[in-house]
């Protein structure tokens, strides 16, 4: 297929775009969908900066082929403009963000953890967040921000 017409749900909205057949989800999001909040840090699935939620589960957008996204649901950091979940002011006070390059990916992991609190309860937060490389914070700010966000009430809960 030279080009692909991709229809999927993006941050709750039905979306349709034309993309090259070999596009990755990351290219679709940063390109025609204008979600430049999703960052490319390595293209290898190592750094996690491109983490988005696909049908509610965290994935590296650089490793998802666009042709597998049809009919599915994608959430990016841009969703926070509407629902502030997790609360960016709380995360900011905790020191989650320094340079911000890894930050959107981290935020999406925290969003996912808030919806699945049983996961954080049963496992080590550092291990759950180990797929998000950060060079600035040394991870303490990220872990304490995640812990604080998990204690905060509100937000969406799903059965995913």
């Amino acid at each position: 297929m030279a080009e692909l017409v991709l229809e999927f749900t993006l941050n709750g909205q039905p979306t349709s775009c034309r993309v090259p057949g070999e596009a990755r989800l990351l290219d679709v999001l940063r390109g025609p969908c204008r979600c430049t909040g999703v960052k490319e840090g390595c293209g290898e699935g190592e750094c996690g900066a491109c983490t988005v939620l696909l049908d509610g589960q965290p994935v590296n957008a650089c490793l998802v082929p666009a042709f597998q996204v049809a009919g599915r649901s994608v959430e990016t950091v841009e969703a926070l403009r509407c629902d502030r979940d997790p609360d960016p002011e709380l995360l900011n006070r905790s020191g989650v963000a320094q340079c911000g390059a890894c930050t959107p990916g981290v935020v999406m992991m925290i969003r996912w953890l808030r919806r699945n609190p049983h996961l954080a309860a049963g496992a080590d937060l550092r291990q759950l967040l180990a797929g998000n490389l950060c060079r600035c914070t040394g991870y303490d700010g990220i872990v304490s921000g995640a812990a604080a966000a998990l204690k905060q009430a509100g937000g969406q809960h799903s059965d995913t």
Binding site: R24, G43, L63
Partner: peptide, 26 residues
């Protein structure tokens, strides 16, 4: 055959030759 693609897509755009044709099982 392509399932989760977590190996196939590594360094996807930097590859000189990409495997083709693909059979998407998703």
């Amino acid at each position: 055959p392509v399932a989760g693609a977590t190996d196939l897509l590594v360094g996807w755009h930097e590859r000189e030759h990409r495997p083709e044709p693909l059979l998407d099982l998703s």
